[in-house]
Design a protein around this nucleic acid. Structure first.
Length: 461
RNA sequence: UCCCCUGUAGCUCAGUCGGUAGAGCAGUUGACUGUUAAUCAAUUGGUCGCAAGUUCGAGUCUUGCCGGGGGAGCCA
C-alpha cells in the first residue's frame, strides 16, 4: 500500500481509508489496551498521532519499542475524538522496522540542552528543533537561488581549492598530498613544486576575486558555496567551515550594492516566513519569542543607512559608556554595532564609507582619500551579517593601495587584468549563510544551524 | 588567542560550615478504556572530568591538565 507522508496526512481535509504511514516515534503514551504514539517522518514539523489498540496486529511488539524506533503502520485517517489534533491514524497493523532500545538511545521524549545535542550531532536532526533548523536551512538556500535567478544573476562555481595564496581574507587551510613525515626540500624549504598542484595550495577563504572575474564578463553573478577559515575563533558566530553567498555586479555603485543587500535580505526573510510557518512558529514558541514579528517588521520597513563618520558621531554623543571609547578611525566594536542596530535604530543598519586603514585593499577609495566605499550590514543579535564594497576599478589607485598594504601586485596579475582590460565600476558583498540562519531562527549558536559544525578542535562527525 | 563561568546518575540539576551523595525526568515493574512531554505507585542506577596536594576526613579547599559554555578579538 502506498505510503502517505505525515505532512500530507496533517494537511488532509477528510478521512482516508486504508493507508500506510511510516516514521520515527517521538513520544508514546500507554493506557490499558490502547497506546498513542506521535510519529514524525521528517516531512513536517508536526507529528501525526497513531492510535494502536490491543486488537491491532503487532500490538505487543509495539508496546515494547522505545522512543526513536522506526515504524510502518497500516490504518485509516479518522477524525480524532479527543482534543489536540483534528485527525489521527487508527492503526490496524503496525511493524517495528528498527527498534531504538530505550536503555541506550540517547534521545528522550523531553528537551535536551543544545550542548548535549552537539555531542550527538549525528542524532540531533531527529529532534524537533534541529528538524526545524534544517528544513529552514533548505528553504533559505532555495530562497537565495530564487532571488538571484529572478534578478538575472548567474550562479558561478568558484573553486574550493585555490593555488593563489594571496586572498588575504584570513588564515587558510593547507591542501597537500606531500608526505608530512618526509616532505621534499629545496634550498632548506619545503619544495611545493613536487606537490599535487605544483605549488602551495589552500582551501578558499572567499570566492570574491574569482567572482569579480566573472562579473566583469557576465555582468551579474553570485557564488554560494563552502568557505574555510583556519582562524582560532571560539565564538558563537564563527565556524572554520561555513557557507557564503557573494553576489558581484558590474556597473554597480555602493548605493546599488546596498539596495541589493536590503532587497535580498527582505526577500529571503519573507520567503522563509511564507514557506515554513510551522517551523517559524516553533522557533517563536520555543527558541526566541518574537522572531516572527521581528522578521515581518524588517521585511516591510527600510534599513537605516549612514556613513561611518555619522555613526561615530552618533556613538560619541550617545551618552553610553562603552568599554572601547569611540573616535574616528577605530574599527567599530561589537558593543558599538549592537548600540546602533539594537538601541538607536531597532532596524538593520547599513554603515558605509569606512576609513581605508581598517578595510581591504580592493575597496574603492573615496575622493577624500581617507575613506573607502565599504559597507557593513548590521542586524540585532548577530552583528555583521553582510560585508561588502564598491571595488577599486582604477588600476593605478588599486596598485598603489596594494603596495601601501604590503601586497605584491605581481601576485595578483590575473586579478589586475580585470582592471587592465575593459575595467568597469563594480561592487558586491559577502553574506554568511549561517549568520542569516541565526537571525531568522533566533538560534544563539552558529554550531547549531549547520549540520556538521567545524570549529577549532572539533570535526568529529 | 585573551577574560569569566562551569564539569555530580542516561538527561536537567541541587548538594549549606569539609564528615563517603539527592531530586525531577528517562529506564524497569505494576495500576489505569482516549492520552497530549499522560497520570499514580514501587524500583534500578554514581571511580562526583582526570591527576596531585592540604586534612583524621575532600563532591566541597589548593594547583595542574582535559572537556563544555559565555564574552572579547578576527570576521561572514
Amino acid at each position: 500500500m502506498k505510503r502517505i507522508p505525515v505532512k500530507n496526512l496533517l494537511n488532509s481535509k477528510e478521512e482516508i481509508n486504508q493507508l500506510r504511514v511510516c516514521g520515527w516515534i517521538r513520544t508514546k503514551r500507554e493506557g490499558k489496551g490502547i497506546c498513542f504514539a506521535e510519529v514524525n517522518d521528517g516531512s513536517s514539523q508536526k507529528n501525526i498521532q497513531l492510535v494502536v489498540e490491543e486488537n491491532a496486529d503487532g500490538y505487543a511488539d509495539f508496546l515494547k519499542c522505545g522512543t526513536g524506533s522506526s515504524v510502518s503502520a497500516l490504518g485509516s485517517l479518522v477524525k480524532s475524538p479527543a482534543a489536540g489534533q483534528a485527525y489521527e491514524v487508527k492503526v490496524s497493523s503496525i511493524e517495528i522496522l528498527g527498534d531504538a532500545p530505550a536503555d541506550t538511545y540517547p534521545l528522550q521524549k523531553k528537551r535536551h540542552s543544545f550542548e548535549f545535542l552537539r555531542e550527538i550531532a549525528h542524532l540531533r536532526p531527529r529532534t524537533n528543533t534541529f528538524g526545524a533548523v534544517f528544513r529552514v536551512r533548505n528553504s533559505l538556500a532555495a530562497a537565495v537561488h530564487s532571488f538571484f535567478q529572478q534578478n538575472d544573476f548567474y550562479w558561478i562555481h568558484t573553486p574550493i581549492i585555490t593555488a593563489s595564496d594571496c586572498e588575504g581574507a584570513g588564515e587558510m587551510f593547507r591542501v597537500t598530498t606531500l608526505d608530512m613525515k618526509n616532505p621534499p626540500f629545496k634550498d632548506g624549504r619545503i619544495n611545493f613544486e613536487d606537490d599535487f598542484f605544483g605549488r602551495e595550495s589552500h582551501l578558499t577563504v572567499s570566492g570574491q576575486l574569482e567572482g569579480e572575474l566573472f562579473a566583469t564578463a557576465l555582468g551579474k553573478i553570485y557564488t554560494f558555496g563552502p568557505t574555510f577559515r583556519a582562524e582560532n575563533s571560539n565564538t558563537s558566530r564563527h565556524l572554520a567551515e561555513f557557507w557564503m553567498i557573494e553576489p558581484e555586479a558590474a556597473f554597480s555603485t555602493l548605493e546599488d550594492n546596498a539596495d541589493l543587500a536590503e532587497d535580498f535580505l527582505k526577500y529571503i526573510f519573507k520567503y522563509v516566513l511564507d514557506n515554513n510557518p510551522d517551523e517559524m512558529k516553533f522557533f517563536d514558541d520555543f527558541v526566541q519569542k518574537g522572531v516572527i514579528n521581528r522578521l515581518e517588521k524588517i521585511a516591510s520597513s527600510s534599513f537605516e543607512r549612514l556613513s561611518y563618520t555619522d555613526a561615530v558621531k552618533i556613538l560619541e554623543t550617545s551618552g553610553e559608556s562603552f568599554d572601547y571609547p569611540v573616535k574616528w578611525g577605530i574599527d567599530l566594536q561589537s558593543e558599538h554595532e549592537r548600540y546602533l542596530t539594537e538601541k538607536k535604530f531597532s532596524v538593520p543598519v547599513i554603515v558605509t564609507d569606512y576609513p581605508k586603514e581598517i578595510k581591504a585593499f580592493y575597496m574603492r577609495l573615496n575622493d577624500d582619500q581617507k575613506t573607502v566605499r565599504a559597507m557593513d550590514v548590521l542586524v540585532a543579535g548577530v552583528g555583521e551579517i553582510i560585508g561588502g564594497s564598491e571595488r577599486e576599478y582604477r588600476l593605478d589607485v588599486l596598485e598603489k593601495r596594494m603596495k601601501e598594504m604590503n601586497l605584491d601586485p605581481a601576485d595578483y596579475w590575473w586579478y589586475l587584468d580585470t582592471r587592465r582590460f575593459g575595467s568597469v565600476p563594480h561592487s558586491g558583498f559577502g553574506l554568511g549563510f549561517e549568520r542569516a540562519m541565526l537571525f531568522i531562527t533566533g538560534m544563539q549558536n552558529i554550531r547549531d544551524v549547520i549540520p556538521f559544525p567545524r570549529t577549532p578542535g572539533n570535526a568529529l562527525f
